[in-house]
């Protein structure tokens, strides 16, 4: 569980457009790494290259290496489906499957991947919902549709769905940007608990959130619109916010950007 990610020389393309350029970094296991930076600088694109979701977009293409505990995700014999089972993802907008109940939503990843006994499935669903701090709110209505929950509950349902398949790494693409402060707090607390078991990478536009939840922070920027995004620096969160080594980081964090 909880693997280290080593990225070296990674570039991602949409067709012929280079979206991110030559990124190298290390993501430590059992920690939270936050990505911050202006819109369009390639944070989300980079996040999606970490579980091979980038190539799902038409024209998406990746160059470079992503090592997950010494195994290259972009090796020639690697099955992207197996990668996505190991590296889970939570999206910006909560997206429970509308045709499925709460129970089926959590069990979806398992059911769609193989056979599990009923009692084993019950056990995993309960554990995942408890892990996502949602169990007490939904335990009486597991057979109701997942789309009937509030936005914050739906997002925690999506987190439960992602952790039910027991990934090693959990990627979160602005998981709180569509939520109110109370739901945001619930999810931030959850992230704090989940990092005991998973390697977590979170993209956020909220500087305070990055400061609150993350151990390390990476700052991305782009030279100009249409230019590829680059990693400016990655360091301990306290250092990034208190004393960054690059002037651009300080400008961005203090709101003096542009």
């Amino acid at each position: 569980m909880a693997k280290r990610i080593d990225v070296s020389g990674l570039s991602a393309f949409y067709g012929s457009h280079r979206a991110i350029d030559d990124i190298s970094m290390t993501v430590e296991p059992r920690s939270v790494t936050a990505f911050i930076g202006p819109s369009g600088c390639g944070k989300s694109t980079f996040l999606r290259t970490l579980n091979r979701m980038h190539e799902v977009t038409p024209g998406g293409r990746v160059e470079g290496k992503v090592l997950l505990d010494d195994e290259n995700l972009y090796g020639s014999n690697v099955d992207p489906v197996a990668v996505r089972r190991t590296v889970g993802m939570v999206f910006q907008r909560p997206n429970p499957f509308p045709t499925m109940s709460i129970y089926d939503n959590v069990a979806a990843g398992l059911r769609l991947n193989g056979k599990y006994g009923k009692s084993r499935l019950n056990e995993i669903v309960e554990k995942s919902l408890k892990g996502a701090n949602l169990w007490n709110e939904v335990k009486d209505r597991l057979n109701k549709p997942g789309s009937g929950l509030s936005g914050g509950q739906q997002q925690r349902l999506c987190i439960a769905r992602a952790i039910a398949v027991e990934p090693d790494v959990l990627l979160m693409d602005e998981p709180c940007s569509a939520l109110d402060p109370i739901s945001t707090l619930a999810i931030e607390d959850l992230i704090g608990e989940l990092k005991e078991r998973f390697t977590i990478v979170i993209v956020t536009h909220n500087m305070q959130q990055a400061a609150r939840v993350s151990d390390r922070t990476a700052f991305f920027n782009l030279a100009a619109v249409g230019q590829p995004g680059k990693l400016i620096e990655i360091d301990e969160t306290e250092r990034i916010f208190a004393n960054p080594s690059v002037q651009a980081t300080e400008d961005y964090i203090s709101g003096r950007f542009g």
Partner: peptide, 11 residues
């Protein structure tokens, strides 16, 4: 989003 959610689960 639903397609991506399913793919991201390793389906």
């Amino acid at each position: 989003e639903l397609r991506e959610a399913a793919l991201a689960l390793g389906v």
